[in-house]
Each structure stands twice: as structure tokens, then as C-alpha cells.
Design a protein around this nucleic acid. Sequence first.
DNA 1: AAGCCGGGGGT
DNA 2: ACCCCAGGCTT
Length: 366
Amino acid sequence: MKCGNDAVGGIYNWRMRGECSHGLRAARALAEWQKREGRRNLPWQKGRDPYKIWLSEVMLQQTRAAAVVPYYRNFLARFPTVAALARAEEDEVMAQWSGLGYYRRAANLHRSAKLVAARGAFPRDWEALRALPGVGKSTAGAIAVFAFGERRAILDANAKRVLARLFAVGGAADSAAGERVLWRIAESVLPPREIIRPYTQGLMDLGATVCLRANPHCNRCPLAKYCRAHKTGAENEYPKKLPRKNKPSRQTAMALIVCGEKTLLQKREGKGVWRGLWSLPENADAETLRKQWRKLLPGLRKMPRRLILRHEFTHYKLTAEVLIFRAKQQPPGDWRWTAQKDLPQTALPSPIRKLLAADNGKGNAI
DNA sequence: AAGCCGGGGGT
DNA sequence: ACCCCAGGCTT
């Protein structure tokens, strides 16, 4: 049996028959490389506090490590323990997350913290981790490895890329079928527990610093001699991707309502983007929006100027016409009047934060 | 299986 | 412009 077969059966043979130690040697090479040349300055790599590992892994979902670092520090400074997080107000948790994106993660984290506090104990193994909302297979695997030293697989974007190249996986890595193949590979090539930590960290570090998406540095790769894609010079062919669809454009209208130093904000509920964040009142139709708020706030004056807010999400482009109003007073309601100085502690979406910063609370921005 | 959910940096 | 990132959940 030849090693490095791209059929999954070959990979099983690789380990189980033990006649060929290629797989284990590759894993050891990766672990050794990680200890020598892996990333070591990331703040969540210091200890083994399961809470901190969990927090980092959730923040790192679909988010580059460099972007996470400041959020991780600030979040931990404010919520140093899972108990502190469980006691916190939702708004404050979201405010700490503001700008990081995928806000459901923060809501799930908070919900999980309450579950953990109610139970009185943090999860101690993969199964219990996996039961937390927002912790899928890969995140549970990473936490189980780093916090508990369990022998579990991960399949983040780094591991996907490394394994897809190593075994020249033909299916699209972002398809369900491709993921199934990659999971089976990831689970079948796991080394013994004694090196599971540096091995797992090595997969991530290699993917992030050497096995790059475009033009990987195969000359510096400890796995090059085991890599099927490299053997044929086809590194850039992997991982295969599904063809991407084009983004639709959506139109909406928002109201920037200012009274003195304060701006009217509404908490977004429902199913769409930015759920749980404070934003400007919105309606798909500008005229409806104007009528609606003139009724809610008597004496509202519409300013002649208006802004155009453009923002791209992962799956659509948004163009918002921002109508500007001045209010005479600040009546209470299903909204909040927020002073300019309180914006930094407010859970705003990034584009709204930028808009309000540029506006500087005067309602006549840009 | 496909869609939804953010934002920013790299190319 | 287009790409993708320490993915998970809902439909």
C-alpha cells in the first residue's frame, strides 16, 4: 500500500495497518515545526483556562486572528470569568462585540455563560462543549484539544486547506460532500495525545503562515514531502471551491434623528442582520419612514440634506438613504436617545458607528 | 443542500 | 473588484 493515496480508504490503511508510519511522521513533523516556527504571541495561547479558550475560539470563527486580538483583550478585561459574563447585561456584551461581526456569536456566548452558571460547572469534555449554542464540531474540537488535551479533530479554514492539499481532495471543500471527506481525513490522521496540542496548533499555524490560499510557501513547509498537491505542482488547485453566486443589491431608508447632543437609536430585533444592536430607525420605503416618525415625534423637522450609506455584507450590497431630522424634544418610547459621548459604549454596527462619528452629532454630516 | 450572518484586510 | 477568514445555525 502506497502512502498518500487520495482515496479515503488509503488514509485509513495509512494509520490502522501500521505498516506505514508516513502519517504519524508527518504529524510529528508538523508538531515539531509548530514548536519551532509556529505563532506564539497570540494572547489566547498562554494558559489553559477553558473559558478563555472557548472565548477565543468563538471570536475566531470566520475571523482572522489579528482582528480578534484587541476584542479578546477588551472582552476579558470586562468579563474575566464565565460567572462575570453570565451576570452581565446583554447590551454590554453586545457593546464589547460591536465591530467584530456575526453578532449571534455574542448572544450565544452570553446564553451559554448563563447555562454554565446555572449548572455550576464548565463543560469538561467535547460532548458537553458541543452542546453549548454556538459551539460546533470544529470549535468543540479546538477547545477540547487546547483546554483538555483531548484527541479531537478540527476543521477550520486552515485545516481544510492543509488537508485538502496534503491529500489532493477533489471535492469542493465548501460543499457538504467535500466537508464530509475532509472530516473523515481530519479524524483519521490524528496523532497520539502526547502531541495533539502542537499538532492541532500546527495545522492552524501552517495554514495561516505557510500553506497560504494563494501562492503557498512550499519551500518552507514541513509537510511538502508528504503533500500530494505539491508533488504535481498543483498547490493552487486546492482546496476546490464551489462557484460563487453574485450579490444582490438591496435598498432601504434610515432616519438620523437628532435633538441637541443626542441621537435616536433603536434596538434591532427580528431575524435580519445586526440583531441585538442599536441602529437608526429603518424602513424599506423612505416616504413611509418619514411619515412614521413625524407621527411618532410631533414637531419633527426634516432637513434638506440627506446621506447615502453604502455597505457590503457577505451576501448582499446595501444602499441606505439616510434622512436627517431635528426633533424638538426627546420623548421616551421604543427607542433611546444617546449622547455622542456614550457612543463608544453602545453596541452599534460598524457602518452606523462610522456614520455617527462622521456626523459628530450635528445632523448635518459629510 | 442552500441560505443567512459582518467586517476588514489582502491581492 | 473579488477573495476569504480558528464556522454554526436555520430553513
